[in-house]
Every structure is written in C-alpha cells, then in structure tokens.
Design a protein around this nucleic acid. Structure first.
Length: 260
DNA sequence: TGTCCACGTCT
DNA sequence: AAGACGTGGAC
C-alpha cells in the first residue's frame, strides 16, 4: 500500500481553510458542526455555527435550552428534524452519560441524528480515534484511488470502500486525514473531470494509472446535456492559473511524468 | 419555473 | 438493504 497520508496531509496543511470548528477539539462542537454541514454549504454554516455555540457553549447548555430557542437559531438552515435530534441527543448525553460527550462508536451511533459518517467524523476529528468518515466526496476519492468499479450506492461496494478507508487511515492524524480526503473530493477529485494534474495523490491513483478517472465512480445515466457541460468544463481546466497554484511541488513528480 | 437529483440518516 | 425523508441546487 502506497503512503497516502504524507502527501495528502502535506496538501491539507497548506490548503485547509481556517474554519471555526477547526479551532476546537471539543467533541460537542465538532458534532454541532458536522450536523450543520450535513445539509448546508460551509459558507452558510459559519454564521449559524458561531451563533449556536455562543448561545449553547456546552452540551449541558443545549440540553437545558427550550427547543424553541434551538429552532430559532436553526431558522434558515432547513432540515429542522436534525435540530430536534440535536436537542434530544444533548438531553440523552446529559441524562445517560453525565454530560460527558460519548467517545465510543456505539454510544455515538445510538444518538439520534448520528449515523455511520457522523460518528466516524466526531471520533476521528475530535477524539483522534482512527475511524473512517466516508461521505460522498470521500467515496469518490477512494473509488478512484483503488479503481473500485461498480455502483458505489450499493451496500457491498460501499462496505469495500469503507474497509479501504480504514486501511489507509494513519494512526497519528486520522481526523485530518479524513478531512483531507473529503476536501480533496470537494476541490480536486471532483465528479466528471477530476483535476489529476494538480492532485497530491495522482501518483498513487489506480484509476489515473489506468485512465479510468472519468469513468469511476460509475454513474447511473449520463444525459447528452451533461456531456456538453463536461466538454465546457474541460476547456476551463486548462490554463487556469489559480488552480495551478494548488499544485504540490514534488521532487518525485515531473511534468513529463504527470503528462505521461 | 418546474422537475429531478443529491446526501446522511432512518427504517 | 432499498427506499423515504427534506430541501438546495442543477438543469
């Protein structure tokens, strides 16, 4: 297995955004951010997160607040059942865990609104426990890295990808590694036409090696209109200088090698 | 504008 | 374990 962690973490260290929930290791606050991020883009979440944490700085504060206060701070974010779950889960944490935020996978999964992804995200990011956190972006990155063919929405393929995610997870910085995989999927290893020329993992990528990067992961159907849009995107990838600035200088990777 | 798809959780 | 859910965004 190639070393993915070193180049990926180096890339992440250089390019990660300074976000409010990246300035804390409080599992409660990481949890709040993950729930908000499930349904809304980062830019939109920032303000809501700051107001929410100011109003409810601890899980006890959230548990003791009236639901209406919680919902009012959630107003505009949508998916209100998740705010209700957040509130109910906070009360469970206070009642059944004495206010100590759970740090085991099983205990986290038992809380309403925390599924496989969020449990892994909180555990790895806040607690440093090497647990996969495989969201849609990470699925795409891993499917390409290991040239996983087949429908990634199917349970079997999904399990295989999660197993690979665990295998490549470094023991020392699992949270940063998980976030880096997701960020890579959001910025570079995008659907359709990925930015392999500026990807820190291009040398390690099996799909790239086989020229399959645009066919993995498998897409259901591809209307003609989408093909046209992708052709348009292709033109934009070439010669975009600010994207070129994302490229990692690497002694092992020459331009000729990248183009070959 | 309406229609369809995306996405993590729940069942 | 495939589909529902809720809602924003793409087309």
């Amino acid at each position: 297995m190639r070393d993915l962690a070193r180049p990926l973490l180096a890339w992440f260290d250089r390019h990660k955004r300074d976000l409010p929930w990246r300035r804390t290791s409080d599992p409660y606050r990481i949890w709040v951010s993950e729930i908000m991020l499930q349904q809304t883009q980062v830019d939109r979440v920032i303000g809501y997160y700051e107001r929410f944490i100011e109003a409810f700085p601890t899980v006890e504060a959230l548990a003791n607040a009236p639901l209406d206060d919680v919902l009012r701070l959630w107003e505009g974010l949508g998916y209100y059942s998740r705010a209700r779950n957040l509130h109910a889960a906070a009360q469970t944490v206070v009642r059944e865990h004495g206010g100590a935020f759970p740090r085991s996978y099983e205990a986290l999964r038992a809380l309403p609104g925390i599924g496989e992804y969020t449990a892994g995200a909180v555990l790895s990011i806040a607690c440093g426990v090497p647990t996969p956190a495989v969201d849609a972006n990470a699925i795409r990155v891993l499917a390409r890295l290991f040239a996983i063919e087949g429908d990634a929405s199917k349970g079997q393929v999904r399990r295989r990808i999660t197993e690979l995610a665990l295998q490549v997870l470094p023991a020392d910085r699992p949270g940063d590694f998980n976030q880096a995989l997701m960020e890579l999927g959001a910025l570079i290893c995008i659907p359709g036409r990925p930015g392999c020329l500026i990807c820190p993992l291009t040398d390690a990528c099996e799909a790239r090696a086989r020229g399959l990067q645009e066919r993995i992961p498998e897409v259901k159907s591809r209307p003609l209109q989408q093909l046209a849009a992708r052709a348009h995107d292709e033109a934009r990838w070439v010669g975009v200088s600010e994207l070129a600035a994302l490229a990692m200088p690497s002694p092992h990777r020459t331009l000729a090698g990248m183009l070959g």
